[in-house]
């Protein structure tokens, strides 16, 4: 049965790289006791596919990987499904019943170090929801800029003006080549994040502006789930902005690059280590959250 796992990566674990994270999940899945499917061949490995790698130093509330579990899929089947299972030596009817997603989440969270939480697991169908990796077209971020030597309201004003630019040219250096690139088309949406009017609610500190903002970005979490650093920044402590950026192999915009372009535009000093980025979620072409494509079980 194919599932999509949504997880968060925050705190000191932001310093682990993508490869390390993938290796970590293989071990964690083994420890959890969840039955996994393996490829055939001399060195069998788990069937996992990770979406949109996160840069070292960035945090996220919306990371995803797809996994093939060795449990019976209750809804199967197309011929493709049978073929897929045959390739890995499994027969759907002979597999054990899958525990509910909530149980699987619990099993995995029991193994996770602080900083990684499993936020959801949904069943996905081959074809319809595709591979996590190839689906990703966009991601949303909160970016916090410290040490720019300007107060928040001034920076916000300049950011507003910056967004009206028709072109944002960035000098991109890759391993193969360097070139001037216009990143404006890759920036789908952006705005300064300045959220005021704190009120105490039963869930802790929440603000109506915050609720409005979360509703606007279709977040499936409340304001308190956002790590303190970003929350405090958005509440006026530092300059923060929200951005929806092209993500994936076709076009990719890193929010720290956007931050750098903004600093150059505004005449602020830019220090790459003074940028902190929180990814909120990852989306498909149609603006659907990757997590929304699956079904609950």
């Amino acid at each position: 049965m194919k599932v999509r796992v949504k997880f968060t990566k925050t705190g000191s674990l932001r310093f682990t790289g993508h490869l390390d994270l993938m290796r970590f999940f293989q071990k964690a899945l083994r420890i959890s006791g969840i039955k996994m499917a393996y490829t055939k061949g001399y060195s069998p490995h788990m069937i996992l596919s990770f979406a949109a790698p996160l840069g070292v130093g960035m945090e996220s509330l919306g990371e995803y990987f797809d996994a093939e579990l060795a449990y019976r899929d209750p809804v199967l089947h197309t011929a493709d499904d049978d073929e897929r299972l045959k390739d890995i030596g499994l027969i759907n009817e002979e597999l054990p019943l899958c525990p509910p997603a909530s149980v699987l989440i619990e099993m995995l969270n029991a193994v996770m170090p602080s900083g990684i939480r499993i936020a959801g697991i949904t069943r996905i169908e081959e074809g319809k929801s595709g591979k996590a990796m190839s689906l990703v077209k966009e991601a949303s971020y909160i970016t916090v800029l410290s040490g720019i030597g300007a107060d928040v309201s001034e920076a916000s004003e300049k950011f507003g003006a910056f967004l009206t630019e028709e072109k944002i040219i960035v000098h991109k250096i890759t391993k193969k080549a360097e070139a001037d690139v216009d990143i404006r088309p890759m920036l789908h949406k952006a705005k300064t994040l300045l959220i005021k009017n704190e009120t105490e609610t039963s869930k802790g500190t929440e603000t109506s502006e915050a609720a409005e903002f979360l509703k606007e970005i279709k977040a499936d979490f409340d304001w308190t789930r956002i790590p303190e650093f970003y929350r405090k920044a958005a509440e006026g402590e530092r300059f923060a902005f929200y951005a929806e950026c092209a993500t994936g192999s076709a076009a990719h915009l890193r929010p720290d690059m956007l931050a750098e372009a903004f600093c150059r535009y505004a005449g602020y000093e830019f220090n790459e280590y003074d940028v902190r980025v929180l990814r909120l979620d990852t989306f498909t072409d149609g603006g659907l959250s990757l997590g929304a494509l699956g079904e609950d079980f």
């Binding site: 000191s12 310093f15 602080s114 003074d274």
Partner: peptide, 28 residues
């Protein structure tokens, strides 16, 4: 979890910052 002792600025400027953060599986 303990926040890293080293600042982001330092951790992001050195090779393999994961060497310095701890928090591994089975860490006590």
């Amino acid at each position: 979890m303990s926040e890293p002792f080293l600042s982001d600025r330092i951790l992001l400027s050195v090779e393999k910052p994961a060497r310095y953060i701890g928090n591994e599986i089975n860490a006590v």
